[in-house]
């Protein structure tokens, strides 16, 4: 068995905020309407950011859970065992990305599990498959290598403690020749 670290790669330039990933996630996992395992938000510079659990290298949820309900699989996916969860909410507070969500129906925490049942069948996670512009992809970050990729972008929470398994292609500033500058 090889140790992997599956992670999402998000291309800021390609996302236009259609929310297809968020809807596909909800559809695939049949989560409650208040539970958002994946969230699309608008950043200050009018670009979009689609974030779910980042299956961190040092997951805070994993560290703070008093019931030891979290595990990290050999492929890097952080999973929560709902049988062990007591719904204390410590993981929800601890996660800087707001990944674990409180489910009012089960009164427990739940979170993205990177659609591992789909992955086990050789399919990509639902959010990745639904992304029509391929702004969201997923790779094994232990072997994937691209010089244009960066670890974080403005608007993404501090990555220092948790080392999230996500990489970004930052927005490239483009020259828009058809726009006249305002001071002329």
């Amino acid at each position: 068995m090889m140790v992997k670290q599956m992670g999402f790669v998000f291309n800021v330039d390609l996302c236009f905020g259609c929310m297809a990933c968020e809807i596909a996630c909800r559809n695939e996992n049949q989560t409650d309407s208040t539970v958002r395992w994946r969230k699309v938000s608008r950043l200050t510079d009018d670009s979009f950011l689609s974030v779910s659990c980042n299956h961190c290298n040092s997951p805070e949820c994993f560290r703070v859970c008093p019931e030891n309900a979290f595990t990290k699989r050999g492929d890097g996916i952080v999973q929560i065992n709902s049988d062990l969860c007591i719904g204390c909410g410590l993981c929800i507070e601890a996660c800087p990305y707001g990944a674990p969500q409180y489910d009012p129906l089960t009164q427990k925490a739940s979170k993205c599990q990177m659609c591992y049942p789909r992955q086990d069948k050789g399919l990509p996670p639902a959010c990745v498959e639904s992304c029509s512009t391929e702004a969201l992809t997923f790779v094994d970050l232990n072997i994937f290598c691209d010089k244009k990729m960066v670890g974080t972008i403005p608007g993404f929470p501090d990555t220092r403690l948790t080392n999230p398994s996500i990489a970004f292609y930052p927005a490239i500033e483009r020259n828009r020749y058809f726009l006249k500058s305002s001071n002329k």
Binding site: V3, F62, N68, T71, K72, G74
Partner: peptide, 15 residues
């Protein structure tokens, strides 16, 4: 080494 790594990884993540 591969088996070793998988075992150490499981230890480090409480699996």
């Amino acid at each position: 080494q591969q088996f070793k790594e998988a075992f150490i990884y499981d230890l480090l993540y409480g699996n």
